[in-house]
Design a protein around this nucleic acid. Structure first.
Lengths: 259, 259
DNA sequence: TTCAAGAACCTGTTATGACGGGTCATGTCA
DNA sequence: TGACATGACCCGTCATAACAGGTTCTTGAA
């Protein structure tokens, strides 16, 4: 048999509840995972409800169990569902703290708090992806990427250095936009029509090196928040950023729920 | 064949580099995952080094590829290794991290990642609440509160100083518990029957002062993550903490959703 | 009627086999 | 010598097949 690259749209099968991406390049388990995610988020599968069993999904999507399990496993590790042996898979309680931890651009977040922000474009040029950048953006090492370096100001004081990496096509389009006053998130969504879904964030503390200290107008070795943020649009990484915030001028705030 | 419940210690096979748990109940992939984790943590597989290929591990452990892949997949999810298609699996730069998506105690979070933690009790005594502490715990300034200072270790290295404030009744009961090895969260929930609901968190970067530097065995002015965390139980603030994490050894990770 | 043994499902674990597609070293040909 | 083709090797994806062990409902015996 030739299982590979089979797409999930079965010929003339109207009884399958969901028409999957017709000619998608994505793996089957990814397609199924996204369908299930959509059903959970739009309420088709309400919180605490039991999902169809693995064998039911095997029939519904016409794939093997290993494929279903990979999709479910992804959702489980995300925390969207949980499984109970002998019983089935269930929709987890939805996170109710999104108000305080929404994926927002810096300007978006600050302007709603009444702060005044703008950016100084330090550089915008194509470069070869470093190992980390390539891995995060799912590209080959040394693949061409677009690098944008900005210095962000809050109330006329420099507060952060942002180094962002984009796939080449996106980066080119961004240079035509007004990066000084507009958030990249807003440009990606409104002008480029990308559907931002979520971001993975890492936060740590480092010392400012000479370059960062000069840009941020602080002493060398001052403490900085270093944030690594990978933003996803429809399950494609679209924006990988290093953000260096002045430790004396910025705080990250959020609310965390006990599951 | 009867593959299930086979243990990994092959009869009289001395050439297998690692004698696996002889009569373990654990699944094979779990055993293999833990062996690989130990090799990474003890330096047998140094950071950035390439690990044996999946087929080599298949032979070495005498299991099928799906089993190896499940073990490697777990380690990858944890961030302990990363894979590059066409090349192989590699050991990631080690750095402890904690997910911010769930409200967890430090020990809870670390032990699920296979790290070893314990605490050294620096002090535990009643004090008068400072302005900030009183405001957060909704008490009058100078009201009596219970202060607990601990030095937390991760893999035998000091990683954070925790200063916690509790209402007096709670503080007294906590001193009777084993604060060295048990999470305060767990004690509050299980022993004191409190229903933890959420926490408000602030994160910033600061420089280590002399006292923190001495406790954490780092140079003065090294970068630290300073976390202020107010934990709530049924809409009453119950635990206010200052956490000072070494910037070179710890990071926070989270996923933020758009909308 | 009560209770225990199954039956029927469910997820967990594992083996085997296959093909797709990326990486890299090597050898061949111009 | 240099560019290119090739093959060995590696991870990614997917199918099929089994058995282990937990949950739940049915059924038959005491």
């Amino acid at each position: 048999m030739a299982p590979h690259r089979k797409q999930i749209a079965p010929p003339g099968a109207a009884e399958v509840e969901d028409a999957l991406s017709p000619v998608s390049q994505m793996p089957l388990y990814t397609q199924i995972r996204e369908i299930l995610r959509r059903r959970i988020l739009d309420g088709s599968y309400p919180p605490h409800s039991q999902m169809p069993s693995e064998s039911q999904m095997m029939s519904a999507f016409d794939v093997s169990r290993i494929t279903i399990r990979q999709a479910l496993g992804d959702l489980q590790k995300e925390g969207l569902i949980f499984k109970v042996m002998g019983k089935g898979s269930f929709v987890a309680k939805p996170k109710a703290f999104q108000s305080l931890s929404r994926l927002q651009g810096f300007g978006e977040a600050m302007s709603t708090s009444g702060y005044e922000t703008y950016s100084l474009l330090l550089s915008a040029k194509p470069v070869a992806a470093s190992a980390v950048v390539a891995q995060r953006l799912q590209l080959k090492p040394e693949a061409p990427v677009f690098e944008i370096q900005r210095l962000r100001y809050l109330n006329r004081e420099p507060i952060s250095v942002d180094v962002s990496y984009f796939p080449p096509d996106i980066g080119e389009r961004l240079t035509q936009e007004d990066l000084a006053t507009r958030d990249i998130f807003v440009i990606l969504e409104n002008d480029l029509g990308r559907n931002l879904t979520h971001a993975d964030v890492q936060i740590e503390a480092i010392s400012a090196d000479e370059s960062l200290a000069r840009h941020l107008d602080i002493a060398e070795a001052s403490p900085l928040l270093r944030i690594e943020r990978l933003t996803w649009a429809d399950d494609r990484p679209i924006d990988f950023e290093f953000l260096y915030y002045r430790g004396d001028a910025f705080q990250y705030r959020l609310r965390i729920d006990r599951s």
